[in-house]
């Protein structure tokens, strides 16, 4: 189906919610029209400021997101939210439940919430996330929040998109060894210990403060560790203040350009992998011969390395 790309672009720019939503779906489905639209978007749109919010399930990410956004709405700042939940490896389906905790802002005309499943089955980040960021930016959303559960490499890649990454955790998230393990803890620009009314909350704050003080490198940003109670709306305005501070820090040190170039690089790699997969790997997987090769390897008459040499004409 051919559609008028110029018209769609203008409608999105004018903030038409139906069209923004349709364009995001096109991008998620990877349609030809989506590619045409995005060709124009990449050449005309500056991405808005991106904030990643990550942390274990149940730590209060969606509730905190709602509180942070409420403070911006008071200043008439428009916000786009991309709430990501995992796709099931077994069924390919997904249960997207982040809206449950964002009901207080769901009908505000300054907010656009889009739930998104990770889909991307090949590892690496789902390219539609950054494309959606650009579509929101075109539509005039000044801040874009990308909210995601912090498990696995996929999620780290998503979080690395953001200009400011907030890592949310809870007092009962474990002892210091859990916290010292590599992972998302290494990418946070702001740490938040939510549910501050729970026991050991102050201890968790201290543990994290010790962790971030060990961060080395030319990077002189020292991540703050904040304590909040999102339900009671305590401590949230500190997060907004630190987002602004981090934004200023990135600008003053010319780090924003660098981080945006890294995002483009990640998006390029990701799109190339996707195209290569579509063009070369998918036809092989769909070919009956592929099953026969699996049988041969199972019967020890072939080995994967020799088969791949034949299939892909590589050394």
């Amino acid at each position: 189906m051919s559609i008028d790309i110029e018209k769609l672009y203008t409608d999105i720019k004018n903030g038409n919610e139906n069209k923004i939503a349709k364009a995001i779906t096109m991008v998620e489905d990877g349609t030809k029209n989506a590619i045409k639209l995005m060709e124009k978007v990449y050449k005309n749109v500056d991405p808005s400021y991106m904030i990643g919010i990550s942390g274990p399930p149940g730590s209060g990410k969606s509730t905190l997101t709602q509180r942070i956004v409420q403070l911006w709405l008071k200043k008439d700042i428009k916000v786009g939210i991309i709430a990501i939940d995992p796709t099931s490896h077994f069924s390919g389906g997904a249960l997207l439940g982040d809206r449950i905790r964002m009901n207080e802002i769901a009908t505000d005309s300054g907010v656009f919430i889009r739930s998104m499943a990770t889909r991307g089955s090949m590892g690496g980040l789902n390219s539609s996330i950054y494309d959606t960021v650009l579509l929101f930016s075109l539509a005039g959303y000044e801040y874009i929040i990308i909210e995601t559960v912090g498990v696995g490499q996929n999620e780290i890649d998503i979080v690395k998109l953001a200009d400011t990454t907030i890592f949310v955790t809870v007092p009962e998230a474990g002892d210091e060894i859990q916290a010292y393990k590599a992972g998302l803890m290494e990418v946070g620009d702001i740490f938040v210990v939510n549910k501050s009314d729970r026991p050991n909350s102050q201890q968790m704050v201290l543990t994290l403060e010790q962790l971030v003080s060990f961060k080395e490198g030319k990077d002189i940003w020292e991540p703050p560790v904040l304590s909040t109670n999102a339900l009671k709306n305590e401590g949230v305005s500190d997060i907004n203040k630190w987002i602004n501070k981090h934004h200023t820090y990135l600008k003053d040190n010319n780090l924003l350009q660098e981080s945006r170039k890294n995002v483009i690089k990640a998006q390029m790699i990701n799109l190339m992998e996707k195209r290569l997969h579509e063009k070369y790997i998918k036809p092989i997987l769909n070919d009956k011969k592929f099953g026969k090769y699996i049988d041969l390897i199972y019967k020890k008459q072939e080995d994967p390395y020799s088969v791949i040499k034949k299939l892909l004409s590589v050394d």
Binding site: S88, S91, G93, A94, L96, T107, A117
Partner: peptide, 18 residues
């Protein structure tokens, strides 16, 4: 979801507007 669909659930007590 088990049938492969993407399901958005918005929780209890929703207004028609929401």
């Amino acid at each position: 979801k088990e049938a492969g669909m993407e399901v958005v659930y918005t929780g209890l007590r929703q207004t028609p507007e929401q």
